[in-house]
Simulated assay, not measured.
Amino acid sequence: MLHIDLYAEITCPWCFVGLHRLDKVLREHFSNVPVDIRHRPVVLLPDAPAGGLYIPDLLRSRYGVTDPKTAFARPEAAARASGFGLDLSRQLWTYPTQPAHALLLAAGERGTQHQLAIALTDAYFLDARNIGDSDVLAGVAVHHGFDRREARAIAQDSAAPQQVQEEVARSAAAGIRSVPHFEFGSGVAISGGRSEAEIASAVREALRRS
Rank of each mutant, 00 (worst) to 15 (best):
S171Y: 01
S171R: 00
G187F: 12
E183H: 14
R204V: 04
V179M: 04
S186K: 11
E205N: 02
G185A: 04
F182E: 05
I176Y: 03
S186T: 06
R177Y: 01
S186Y: 10
I176S: 03
S195L: 12
G192T: 12
A189H: 11
R204D: 13
S186L: 01
G185S: 03
F184P: 05
P180Q: 05
F184H: 03
P180H: 07
V203E: 06
H181E: 03
A197D: 15
S195V: 08
G192P: 10
I199Q: 05
G185V: 08
A174Q: 13
R194Q: 15
I199G: 08
I176C: 07
R194I: 09
G187Y: 14
G175S: 00
F184M: 05
F182D: 05
E198D: 15
I176V: 15
A202S: 14
A174I: 00
S195F: 11
H181W: 07
A174C: 05
F182Y: 15
A200W: 09
R194E: 14
A189E: 12
F184C: 04
S186N: 15
A173G: 08
I190M: 08
R177G: 05
A200C: 06
F182T: 01
E196H: 06
E196K: 09
A172K: 12
F184I: 02
G175K: 00
S171M: 04
H181I: 01
S178H: 08
A172D: 07
G193P: 14
R204E: 15
S191E: 14
G187Q: 12
